[in-house]
Design a protein around this nucleic acid. Structure first.
Lengths: 112, 112
DNA sequence: ACAATATACAACCGTATGGTTGTACTAATG
DNA sequence: CATTAGTACAACCATACGGTTGTATATTGT
């Protein structure tokens, strides 16, 4: 259940960076705040904070205040939205193959 | 069967543009050359040619010489590679849910 | 209330990206 | 074999991106 229509430009753009993909992966089963996440990467706190902000705009993570921290959690709906687009492409592909097969079948039938 | 390991930075970066996603979609069931593809978009031929080159580097399309044209075709393996990464994240998510469920179950058992 | 902790954001720098135009290469056709 | 169609690529421009440092805003603990 997505509140806003997925922005695929932002979404795939957000996934096009190894650090951000790793944040998404970690935030699946951790409850870390921004600073805790930042500690895993060889860059400044601010850089990681910007990555997280970008992931949030892309709908791939959410932040929730817990005490003095803001805990980052991966947004399953976002992942699913991205994956579904790729699924659709694959479906189109298989549809194409089916149509070609059908075409060949039809041709054979009219040939005899 | 991927000849080179997928470069997810390039791959998702390539998908982070509406024009390029549309090229991928079209190239699934069309046999258009670069110029024919370019005719669909409100930008120069060279711009579209660069988009296609980028998609090719990302492993999402292939080009094949047919006559004087170079026909662009979507590379299913590339799509699948991208989708699989997202699948893995979803699996991790479900794994997390399972572990939480297990934890709750265990807790209940030790509680009684 | 104040000091400390955690997060956010602005300004800046170098490089990549998305677009343009112009030129050069390659292959089919008359 | 000269022309034309189709593709590739270089140079350039504006803007976005990934990183930095520095400053501001919340929230907690004493």
């Amino acid at each position: 259940m997505q509140l806003v229509p997925p922005d695929f430009d932002r979404m795939f753009g957000a996934l096009a960076d190894a650090t951000r993909r790793d944040i998404v992966r970690r935030a699946i089963d951790s409850e870390e705040g921004v600073a805790e996440l930042a500690s895993h990467y060889p860059m400044s706190f601010a850089a990681v904070q910007k990555h997280i902000a970008l992931l949030e705009r892309a709908g791939l993570v959410t932040k929730r205040r817990i005490g003095r921290r803001k805990v980052v959690r991966t947004n399953l709906a976002g992942l699913i939205a991205a994956r579904r687009l790729l699924d659709r492409y694959e479906e189109l592909w298989r549809g194409r193959v089916d149509r070609m097969t059908q075409l060949i079948t039809d041709t054979k039938e009219t040939d005899r």
